[in-house]
Amino acid sequence: MSELFSRLGVLADTLAATPILAIGLTLGAFFAGNWLFARIGRPLWLPPVLLSACLLSGVIAILAVDYQAYQQGARWLTVLLGPATVALGIPLYQQMHHIRAMWRPIVVTLPIAATLAAVYALVIAWALGATPEVLASLAPKSVTAPIAIGITEQLGGSVPLMMGGLLITGVVATLFVDLLARLLPVTDERILGFALGLNGHAIGTARAFEISHTAGAFASLGMGLTGVFTAMILPLVFHL
């Protein structure tokens, strides 16, 4: 019996030494989250990414997997974020005729809205007494993850806090776009897509692709432009 236990220990070590456990857990949580999402009737306020992340955190905590080790293994997945960001250029190209028709509102809105997305959050957090580290983690909250990581590191923030902020921002941006689209009202899919991508980065963009291909392309555009613009402006603004 004790022999079996020691072998179980060896098994745990063997699996933990390769990235395969981290990949399996992440994939499993991803599909479980999507399944659960469909089962509970696709509520807007609880998107699959939040469900999956909660499930995954729970499993990691229960199995007592070392978080650092998990993060190491999951790099096999997160490294794909680079090519995935490049992939957003394809719907962008396919929808170029729509984008050309909208260039004026895009050029006017982007610099103002992308700057304010960071400024609103910074002013509110600063007024409520957040430390510089927290401010640096919140500043890129509307920027897509691969770019935001770079910005936060440059500003001296905490990457995990930033990622959490990113998640919440993505979720609430999706909610607020839906809510405000009905109140204002805005029905133009191109505007909704752009607002989703600009404010809600990848989570907003995923939602926009649910609306339509056009909304998705505008979200990719909004996300990409916000990322580029914020990455260049924020390090300058933040040091003032």
């Binding site: 995954l56 995990p160 990848a202």
Partner: peptide, 13 residues
């Protein structure tokens, strides 16, 4: 895309 950002999201917990 969501699958790829999940590992980073989990970090906040």
């Amino acid at each position: 895309l969501v699958l790829l950002i999940m590992p980073g999201v989990v970090g906040v917990f």
